[in-house]
Design a protein around this nucleic acid. Structure first.
Length: 321
DNA sequence: AAGAGTACCAACCGCCAGTAG
DNA sequence: CCTACTGGCGGTTGGTACTCT
């Protein structure tokens, strides 16, 4: 398994930007071979290019390949990238397999130059997808609100809303949840694939999402689908801020769906009723319907003791994949 | 107008896993 | 089993274009 001497170190091998002539020579050579390259190492000599084989492969796969889609990323693509990154991390090549016509290099560049900054602006750590340590105060519609009163799920949703395209915070939260499960138990390929599928599914339109969830219903996805019912991304994003204010006024957190919140959350039954605890004024009918859905009980994320069959059942399901 | 700073992205570099001999 | 080789991956760099002062 020793390192190979790379032809790139050969004296006289050209580096730097490719010229049109070089591009043409490479494309024609590969087309002559019916699109089959064979050995990249031998390609430069066979095609008459004074380039390293590695450089030829890179140029072909990242730029000259006929199935490459060029142009700006769509909102859907961006959402999908974020969801997949939350689940997979910097596995650019894996992420690229979920986006038709996009290369790992292109996605990586787009992440580093666009998405990463958007997430940072939104107060989200682009590496961990956790919210960054909050500023002393949050200002919502002019009102200064202690950060401690903001449920983590709302911080995520606010970050999602800040991203403009309506990032599916639910997808990220699902991925986070599964990541934490995997951290607790170790990982395997099946569960990694599950995460990728979930992330991909959640970047799709809702109707497709439902299909995906049905498909995965035997895997624990059914649980996750329910678990993020209380996530604010499930109702119109313009309601996020209103929901935040509503919850702040209630000082009632949406429980059990997040890492730190999950860790701190007691395993006691939780109430989905976010109707005002102090302020008895009911929310306008329909405005927070999503919050009023019955929610299943979410035990403490870290309570994986033998008595806690809840999580064990989910994990077993995922391993059956 | 010009210099500085920033953003973007193609391309490079080094490492790693798979595999043939 | 070991070694050499190859392709692929992720991190990084450097050149260019654009924006700001």
């Amino acid at each position: 398994m020793g390192r190979s001497p790379c032809c790139c170190h050969d004296a006289g091998v050209k580096k730097g930007p490719w010229t049109e002539e070089e591009d043409r020579a490479l494309v024609e050579h590969i087309q002559r071979r019916g699109g089959h390259v064979g050995s990249w190492r031998g390609l430069p000599k066979a095609s008459g290019l004074n380039r390293c084989g590695k450089s030829c492969r890179l140029r072909w796969t990242n730029y000259l390949r006929p199935d490459i889609k060029r142009g700006n990323f769509t909102d859907d693509e961006e959402r999908l990238i974020i969801s997949l990154h939350a689940a997979l991390g910097n596995k650019w090549s894996t992420i690229a397999t979920h986006l038709d016509g996009r290369t790992d290099n292109e996605i990586k560049n787009y992440w580093n130059t666009h998405i990463r900054k958007k997430l940072l602006r939104a107060g989200v750590d682009p590496v961990t997808h956790q919210q960054l340590p909050p500023a002393p105060d949050h200002h919502l519609n002019g009102a200064s609100v202690p950060a401690a009163l903001l449920p983590e799920s709302l911080l995520w949703a606010a970050a999602a809303a800040t991203l403009g395209g309506g990032l599916d915070a639910g997808a990220i939260m699902q991925a986070q949840l599964l990541q934490q499960l995997l951290h607790a138990i170790g990982s395997n390929n099946a569960t990694t694939n599950l995460i990728a599928n979930l992330a991909a599914a959640n970047a799709m339109p809702n109707i497709l999402l439902q299909d995906q969830m049905n498909m995965l219903s035997s895997t624990g996805a059914n649980f996750l689908q329910q678990s993020y019912l209380c996530n604010v991304s499930n109702f119109p994003e313009q309601d996020v801020v209103q929901a935040q204010q509503q919850l702040i006024s209630n000082t009632t957190a949406c429980p059990g769906t997040t890492s730190s919140a999950g860790a701190e959350q007691a395993a006691a039954p939780v109430s989905r009723d976010v109707s005002p605890a102090v302020d008895q004024t009911p929310a306008p009918v329909g405005e927070f319907d999503g919050l009023l859905e019955p929610m299943m009980e979410m035990p403490n994320l870290y309570s994986l003791e033998s008595s806690d069959s809840f999580w064990m059942d989910i994990l077993e399901d995922s391993y059956r994949l």
